[in-house]
Design a binder for these strands. Structure first.
Lengths: 254, 254
DNA sequence: GTTACACCTTTACGTTACGTAAAGGTCAAT
DNA sequence: ATTGACCTTTACGTAACGTAAAGGTGTAAC
């Protein structure tokens, strides 16, 4: 199939100006010109435009895109996989933003308070990365290097089956917790089941289990933004709910 | 709490230039200037900046944002709710893009074919709106106005409980279907459960139920892009899988 | 055969939301 | 009194197009 500027533009949802501009900067040249000087695009150009738009969607500037798509050693499939990862990351950020809007709504209606810092959560990618770096350090400070290293080693030494089991368990915790949250009662049967699943999940990372450590982690889920954000992502208040369920489960609270 | 440009900038993740620019165009003026001419921001400005960033995140241009936040009749809560809706819509678009990347990957690896049109799905908001308009029309053409109107009327006349039940049912269909898909067998017990749930869900919208109509809808889920995109969003192939499950459930296929 | 209309071309200036640099004043600590 | 990290204004630069002007092309209709 061959396309003129307008046809390709309509197909891809971009303006003719954009296509001419892409020609001008050498990022997407037409396959050929017809006898009247019209730009004619073919299959290869359609595919290339799709690539370009993938990157544009991610906010990559056209200079960099040009480098990418004109590089002969460019591995399209590898790039796509990376692209996919980035889209998933963006969805996570979007979820954080939505959680923030929910929080802000609650705050506007006087149902809760919000720190200035919280008001800007979800806006910045960087902050997520910073927290990522910070988070490792904080845990090391709180629990000591050996424990963290032991935990890391344990993950590394897991068999494929064990790894799958722990992943499955994590998902089950999330699901059960979401269901339990609806009951509103951290002492409810389903909430206690979530706490038990959480214990089993934790035991995979920590060699030994004590009620005190379990309760401590539960409290950390509330105090540490990094963890709270994770649990509160879909439903604000979940972190606190899980903490309460675990406190009851470990007998630290009636 | 009071903030200078840099402090507020760090808090919100924007540059000092941005804050000065926002002052310049009158979109966010500091609460006051100190004796040396420094910009000092207070609580009201923090909240306003948050509002501004919400809109910026949505791609609203600053002129329009200015209109919005300086309008005295501006209802912040209503705007936030709308903002939330738009974020959800964007997440849906993101999911479409991810689905597209998955498809493109499969195509790149030679596992399937892709039309030129499909290559650009998920890129354009407009297209979604167009489809939204088109979709209503198409269904009217295929099934006649009365049925659509009756369906609309039925939704409007639902009690709160009924509405909640139908929403819950829809979620259950999705979950069960996702689980069934893993088995790979549309005749499996869980797949048949999904088909049954789908029937119950459908019955809420259509007054009467016939196997033929049910099977017809199932086929439409595959043929109509609009529906297929919905079901294939998270897992490509789900629409076909559901169709097959329903065909077996209704006895139209062994 | 020419008129209409929807295409196509190049050239060129305009726009948005800042980035970046220059030139200089302020404040707290050493 | 000197750093060094802040702050100020002024002003030009930029990315990725939008938009307008001035004109050529293709074909269907009168």
């Amino acid at each position: 199939m061959e396309y003129t500027v307008q046809k390709l533009g309509r197909l891809a949802g971009v303006s003719t100006r954009t296509l001419r501009y892409y020609d001008e900067i050498g990022i997407l040249k037409p396959a050929r010109m017809n006898s009247s000087g019209y730009r004619i695009y073919g299959q290869a150009e359609v595919n290339r435009l799709q690539q370009i738009l993938f990157y544009r969607e991610l906010g990559v500037n056209l200079d960099r895109i040009k480098e990418l798509v004109t590089d002969p050693s460019f591995d399209g499939i590898e790039a796509l996989k990376e692209h996919r990862e980035q889209l998933l990351a963006r969805r996570k950020q979007l979820d954080a933003l939505i959680a923030n809007v929910d929080k802000t709504l609650a705050w506007s209606e006087g149902r809760m308070t919000m720190t200035d810092k919280e008001k800007f959560e979800g806006f910045k990618q960087k902050l997520i990365d910073d927290n990522e770096a910070k988070y490792g350090k904080e845990v090391r400070e709180k629990y000591g290097d050996e424990k963290v290293d032991k935990s890391n080693a344990k993950v590394k030494n897991m068999t494929k089956e064990q790894y799958e089991e722990v992943t499955r368990l994590a998902a089950e915790v999330t699901d059960t917790l979401a269901e339990a949250f609806k009951t509103g009662d951290p002492g409810s049967e389903v909430a206690q089941k979530a706490a038990e699943l959480h214990k089993r999940w934790l035991t995979y990372y920590w060699g030994e289990y004590t009620k005190e450590a379990h309760a401590g982690v539960a409290q950390m889920y509330v105090d540490d933004e990094r963890f709270r954000a994770y649990y509160d992502e879909k439903q604000p208040g979940t972190a606190e709910f899980l903490r309460d369920a675990i406190l009851i489960y470990t007998g630290m609270k009636a």
